[in-house]
Design a protein around this nucleic acid. Structure first.
Lengths: 207, 207
DNA sequence: CCACACACTGATACTCGGTATCAGATTGAG
DNA sequence: CTCAATCTGATACCGAGTATCAGTGTGTGG
């Protein structure tokens, strides 16, 4: 609501605006400090007050930047979702929907390859913290909403016929495979590339 | 004083443990009252204090029966998970893993068919309340742990080789299909049977 | 250049879920 | 009957998230 409006604002306007730049700077600062505290003490043992104090911001203002404590860590997932949707739309039309989804997820596998250590510690925290898992799942549901229309198009589904659940089922299943692969990737400490695990996971759907 | 003790005596006899039966009774009473309040006012607009007061129980004691507010509504999912796992184990050995999972889920489709109205309002509440979705997802992860070993066996996977993610990927995907089907079932107000939607959802994995 | 409208900020107080502690009552076993 | 274990309510506490409000800057139009 205000955030999306703000985001739309930001992208619609050429000169960034001083105010918004300050906002972006503060936001980045919060993320950085919070990340450090989370890795030092764990997510649950870090309070929002502590983050706010360390950044030099009031608690109330911090909640104006991030709706929830979890969003400080998971905020970037919004952008990831859009990137995956773009990658999916860019896949050739004659590609199988499942394969197109698999390739679209390379947006993520590439990100993880670029900074494996960070990705590992990030995913580790994600998987051992219930409240983060919960919020992460919510974000993935919003990914689903972005991806389903394109999958429906590729399946030749009637857009008016909402009762055709194949697009949402396939998309949800693919995201479940992504989670499985991520879990396994953390479990093996990153020794097997995420891309390989994801291949195996999504391959298991057809066997 | 001795009269109440005598009365308790009267009803307590066969199953060892009067205490546990009292506990079960109270627990059932809480579930019933909470269910009513949730459907009347919505989940979020019903406080734990209100439930406790209505049952005639202290807030602290209520949390001794149910670890979280969500568990009052979702507690029965534990049993469902075990039932699905049993049903899966009972499927013929030569059945395809995916088909076996599909059939095991009939434990749920049959439950919903038995009381469609209740199931619909229950799922409706589940889907429109984020905190319930979150907890529900956690429960499904525990289902996954119950189902994966049997799927691994059917896939002929080496139990020692934890890096084989096919079992967990397939199981997670199947559960994702179950969620998709449930969502669609609610969306169409139950006009299409859940079993049919589930068939379509899981069928979309192989297409 | 100024004035006004608006957005942002910190402070404060509140709600609600969940935890910890403690003293008293109830129960079951020896 | 007694004693230990358990259950209970009361109370106080914690942390996330919300609401309100007055003060203070910022962007903009005159």
């Amino acid at each position: 609501m205000p955030e999306t409006a703000r985001a739309a604002d930001q992208s619609a306007r050429k000169p960034p605006g001083l105010r918004e730049r300050v906002r972006a700077t503060v936001q980045a600062e919060v993320v950085e400090v919070a990340h450090r505290l989370f890795t030092e003490q764990g997510f649950d043992r870090t309070t929002v007050d502590q983050i706010a104090a360390e950044v030099g911001l009031s608690r109330a203002s911090l909640f104006r930047y991030f709706g929830t404590k979890e969003d400080i860590l998971l905020g970037r997932l919004e952008k990831s979702g859009r990137q995956i949707a773009e990658a999916l739309a860019a896949r050739p039309d004659d590609e199988q929907p499942r394969e197109a989804l698999r390739r679209a997820f390379d947006v993520l596998t590439r990100m993880n390859e670029a900074a494996p250590e960070q990705a590992l510690s990030y995913l580790r925290m994600l998987q051992e913290t219930p409240s983060l898992r919960a919020r992460h799942h919510e974000k993935q549901l919003s990914w689903q909403e972005l991806l389903v229309p394109e999958i429906a198009r590729r399946l030749g589904a009637d857009p008016d016929q909402a009762e055709d659940i194949r697009p949402s089922a396939l998309t949800a299943a693919a995201l479940a495979c992504l989670d499985s692969a991520s879990t396994a990737w953390v479990a093996c400490e990153g020794t097997v590339p995420l891309a390989v695990l994801l291949d195996r996971a999504m391959g298991a759907l057809t066997e």
